[in-house]
Design a protein around this nucleic acid. Sequence first.
DNA 1: CAGTTCGTTCAATTTGCACTGAACAGATAG
DNA 2: CTATCTGTTCAGTGCAAATTGAACGAACTG
Lengths: 174, 174
Amino acid sequence: MSSASKASTAPSSQALPRSRFEMVEVTARLCQRLGMPKSTGQIYGLLFLSVHPLSLEEIAEALGLSKASASTGTRHLIGWHAIRQVWKPGDRKDYYEVQADLGDVLRANYLGFFKPKLDAASRKLVVLQELLDADLQSGAIQNEEHTVGRERLQSIARMHSRIQKVLPFAEKLL
Amino acid sequence: MSSASKASTAPSSQALPRSRFEMVEVTARLCQRLGMPKSTGQIYGLLFLSVHPLSLEEIAEALGLSKASASTGTRHLIGWHAIRQVWKPGDRKDYYEVQADLGDVLRANYLGFFKPKLDAASRKLVVLQELLDADLQSGAIQNEEHTVGRERLQSIARMHSRIQKVLPFAEKLL
DNA sequence: CAGTTCGTTCAATTTGCACTGAACAGATAG
DNA sequence: CTATCTGTTCAGTGCAAATTGAACGAACTG
């Protein structure tokens, strides 16, 4: 336990330096814009400018979050390979620090998240083509609708394959 | 008014073909994952497999939405250059159709949305560096924190410039 | 000039999701 | 074994964003 213990819901008992505070805000907004919880972004920003790994409770207190939020947030970030857990010998707490190499983060997310989505999209595209054919067979759509639909789905497919051609390049360069 | 008029909140008085219905679901989920309103995605999916441009009311009725939602949704999509308005001579209604070339859509959004964000991020990075220096001056942070912070911010800057090098390439290829 | 037919805007409601406090489970120490 | 310290899970709460109905304004029509 620390000596000072007055703040309850306040951001922290000891305010963050402005650079740290601003960083937390930036990453929070970024996360929010990406459709992710704001608190998760705050955690990343806090850890990003932290010299030492921080424990769950330190994170929660510094940001004025509950332990629960800190726990879910850190696990999200770990899932995206943005931070990682570290342990100190003789200490049962979990500590967290940012993954230093941003290139690794992007690569890992490409391989573990984006790439699978692309493949799934590819399969879905095939399914849609089949549904379109089936609708033609059953008379649910006319010939013209079938033709136009097929054409548009193929334009997605072309774009899709072009993206798959480009991404591995980008992956290497980052 | 059409002849049949039983459905009130039902998706539509006449069910969509399966291919169309599935397409609407796919784009709806995609939009939602990107943090955009689901209804906007539905509209895009509907228009994507539509042979003719559709009016606001047709969209609203086919998807079981209010005219209000259809109106805001279409204007969002227009803002992203995903669809466009067309008019039929002697008809006061607005009609909407998908922008055929997906490459154009991506390029337009890169130039009008993503690129400016990247530039803003670049400026923000400079501000953060300055704040970090100021915190060192004022004694808010130690020398070590300043060094580590500077290093990490620079790693973002490097990644940032690499991305800016790669993106124009990708832009051409799509 | 009324009377329609459009699209948009706005207040009010609903929906969905982040966040929380409390209960829980696992591990360690005494 | 009991007691304590850790992180996680879960039902409940609150808030922000989406959606809607109704009012509005603009553009035609007769």
